[in-house]
């Protein structure tokens, strides 16, 4: 344990996070690598589906980046999908992020997050209630979700299906008296179904990072400018390019479909798509598919 700078903090020690102490089912102690969240600064937990859509990816990065830039600490579960994406964005923006693991603190799970695991230690830390060497087990993960919600001031749900691990975390958050915010989505999108339901049930609606910052009291309501959210830079585009953009969305559309919708031949379409890609307006999703790129 000492080799890897893993500390064990018992619930009785003063260093043990206050927020974690006052929940219905607190852990007896936690293992920590790196540091613990700074109690004087706000904490937002960003969670969501492991199998996110492109929209979810964009939103996770958008919120995590903006919140980090305002000094908010981002907590999540280091899982695939929304968890990892938001933490990665937070670290990249120079903010502090904390990962709560469902396995021993020396295990990297899932393996593809190794890089995140290393980079998160620089400014933030990793927390687990399971002793080092514990392998990831499916029943550990709902348990660790209560720590994610407990550590936060606000729980932000980016994308979730109706029945999901995210729903469990939300339930914990409500039991623990934390505020829940959700990013709305399309009614037809199963990945936004959970979020829309939460909003209908009274969760806060997160349409931009300012909504969260305001709730945290980091920006004053009277100072807040309701700016139009503009995720794309569409300036300086030619007429043809605008016509192409009009048919693009965050759902992938194939080149064939684009050609038939815009009425352009391939020899006209391909150069314009490449230009748009180089401008950063669109990107490829899979082979032969294009989506709008969120300019975050």
């Amino acid at each position: 344990m000492c080799d890897k700078d893993i500390r064990y903090i018992c619930a009785l020690e003063p260093e043990f996070p206050e927020k974690l102490r006052n929940i219905p089912d607190p852990p007896e102690g936690i293992y920590v690598r790196g540091r613990l969240p700074d109690p004087s600064k706000s904490v937002v937990s960003i969670i969501g589906s492991r199998n996110n859509s492109e929209y979810g990816r964009g939103m996770a990065v958008y919120f995590a980046k903006a919140l980090s830039e305002h000094g908010v600490q981002i907590v999540s579960g280091m899982a695939r999908g929304i968890d990892g994406l938001s933490q990665n964005a937070a670290v990249k923006a120079g903010g502090a992020s904390f990962g709560v693991l469902g396995c021993g603190i020396d295990e990297v799970y899932p393996k593809e997050n190794r890089q995140l695991y290393e980079s998160i230690l620089e400014k933030g830390g990793l927390i687990s209630e399971y002793p080092p060497g514990t392998p990831p087990k499916s029943f550990f993960f709902p348990q660790r979700n209560r720590i994610i919600s407990a550590l936060s001031d606000i729980l932000l749900v980016i994308e979730a299906k109706q029945q999901s691990g995210t729903a469990i975390t939300v339930r914990f958050a409500l039991e623990q008296g934390r505020d829940v915010f959700a990013v709305p989505g399309r009614v037809t999108d199963p990945l936004s179904c959970g979020c829309n339901r939460l909003i209908a049930d009274g969760a806060g609606i997160a349409t931009c990072p300012e909504d969260i910052l305001e709730a945290l009291g980091l920006i004053k309501t009277e100072n807040r400018k309701y700016k139009k959210i503009n995720l794309q830079k569409f300036s300086n585009l030619s007429e043809a390019q605008l016509k192409i953009i009009k048919h693009l969305d965050y759902d992938p559309i194939s080149v064939n479909e684009l050609a038939s919708k815009t009425g352009y031949g391939l020899s006209d379409l391909m150069p314009e798509l490449l230009k748009l890609e180089l401008y950063g307006c669109v990107e490829k999703a899979g082979q032969g598919f294009y989506i709008l790129k969120m300019n975050i």
């Binding site: 391909m270 150069p271 230009k275 490829k284 999703a285």
Partner: peptide
């Protein structure tokens, strides 16, 4: 010319994170 080149770049996406996944 640029049109030829654009088309060729469109066929070749192995380089970008292998499959853009």
């Amino acid at each position: 010319n640029a049109v030829h080149l654009s088309e060729a770049i469109g066929y070749r996406s192995m380089d970008r994170g292998v499959w853009n996944v």
